[in-house]
Computed example of a mutant assay.
Amino acid sequence: MSEAFTIRHQADDARGRYSIDLGPAQAELTYRVLAPDLISADHTFVPPAMRGTGAAAALVERLVADARADGRRIRPRCSYVEAMRRRRPEWADVFAP
């Protein structure tokens, strides 16, 4: 799904942010680094103009792909990320309680 969007990733040692720009609207997913191998997905926001486009799902897919590639696990504190985790059992290896 994320191929349909250009997703930007900004990060430092303490936190990170994935974002998608569509005109004046911007969707985002933010996270905090809890340990070198653990991040906390804290917040997903999609403005009304972008809802129903798959933007939020694309952000979570990118988060999961990057976490897997980096050997990190995700603690889902955001309700949307938690809902996606439940729908995608193949992601179980990437999520921490």
Rank of each mutant, 00 (worst) to 15 (best):
S79G: 05
V94S: 10
Q10L: 14
A57C: 05
L63A: 05
F95D: 06
M84G: 03
I20L: 01
R17S: 05
S79Y: 00
M1H: 00
A69G: 08
A35S: 14
T30M: 14
A58H: 12
A69P: 08
R68D: 13
R75D: 06
A83G: 08
A14L: 09
I20T: 01
A11P: 08
R68Q: 13
P97R: 05
G16R: 09
P47S: 12
T6R: 11
P89W: 03
A69V: 04
R77Y: 11
A67H: 09
E28K: 05
E61I: 08
A65D: 15
R62T: 13
A58K: 08
S19Y: 00
S40E: 15
R88S: 13
R15K: 14
S79L: 06
P48K: 10
R77K: 10
P97L: 02
P24H: 08
A56D: 08
V46K: 04
G52T: 10
Y80L: 10
F5T: 01
A58V: 04
D93M: 03
G52R: 13
R17G: 02
S79C: 00
R8K: 11
L22C: 04
P76T: 05
A25F: 09
Q10V: 15
E28F: 07
L38G: 13
S2A: 15
A92P: 04
D42P: 00
A41M: 07
E82N: 15
V94L: 11
D70N: 15
F45H: 12
Y31Q: 07
G23I: 11
P97Y: 00
S19M: 03
F95G: 02
D66R: 09
G54M: 09
V46H: 02
S40R: 12
D66G: 00
G71D: 11
R88V: 07
M84C: 07
S40G: 14
R17C: 11
R87W: 00
I74Y: 03
